[in-house]
Amino acid sequence: MKPFKVWLRNFTVWKKNFLTSLVGDAIDPLIYFLGFGYGFRALIGNVDGVDYVAFIVPGIIMSSAMTGTSYECTFGSFTRIAGRKTYRSLLIAPIMIEDFVIGEVLWGMTKGLLSAIVMMLFTIIFGYFPGWFIIFNILNILLTTFTFASTSLFFASISRSYDFFSYYFTAFISPMFILSGIFFPISSFPSWASFIARIFPLTYSVHLSRGIYTKTFSFFMIIDILFLLIWGSFFFYLSMKFMKKRLIN
């Protein structure tokens, strides 16, 4: 219950300007969807037997989940632990660091979920709808946002300033956006690039989502789920550890 109160506190603050925030989070993936999707379709036509726009829709939704969560759990969380020191106003009450970390992760997941849902609604308007399989996709979004919330929060817990996050975004999030198989199949990469792609968690989210959208299930989806779970749990553990180290001396 305690982490939920941390979540509720963040939600209350966000609610004041939610429209601006939602539009801001959704605008980037939207531009890529329209630009890449409809731009490249003219040149490419079909990929792996599907229409190019249909090919990128699952990945674009996942990238929007990733970005929404990552911004919140880096810049947002860092403001709460270092900038405004909001954590102090929580920790003088019987809220423990564990509650705070879980609350931040849950809130980061919520932000990612909201971005992804906005993106998903948009693609539905354009006619890309996986039917009731959308439930699986939402589960996938939750798993993906958990993975990125934990990873981002770990970086927030060790960061000394906001500048640090520009590395996180340029060296991790941005390459992932390009190399995780959203816009082209990983199999078409040279072997070194496909190796890198296989280290990135987003690759597994995209693969999973694409399977859901094309309704083709395979054994590899279990690997996708396990990879995301293990990655997310590992960074969740680290976030907890380093947040305690940072906030208790």
């Binding site: 506190r9 209350t12 405004r84 909001t86 102090r88 106003s89 003088i92």
Partner: peptide, 13 residues
């Protein structure tokens, strides 16, 4: 009930 020197008010609320 703890009253610290600073930083115990939530400025966003």
């Amino acid at each position: 009930g703890f009253i610290a020197q600073d930083e115990i008010l939530d400025e966003e609320l």
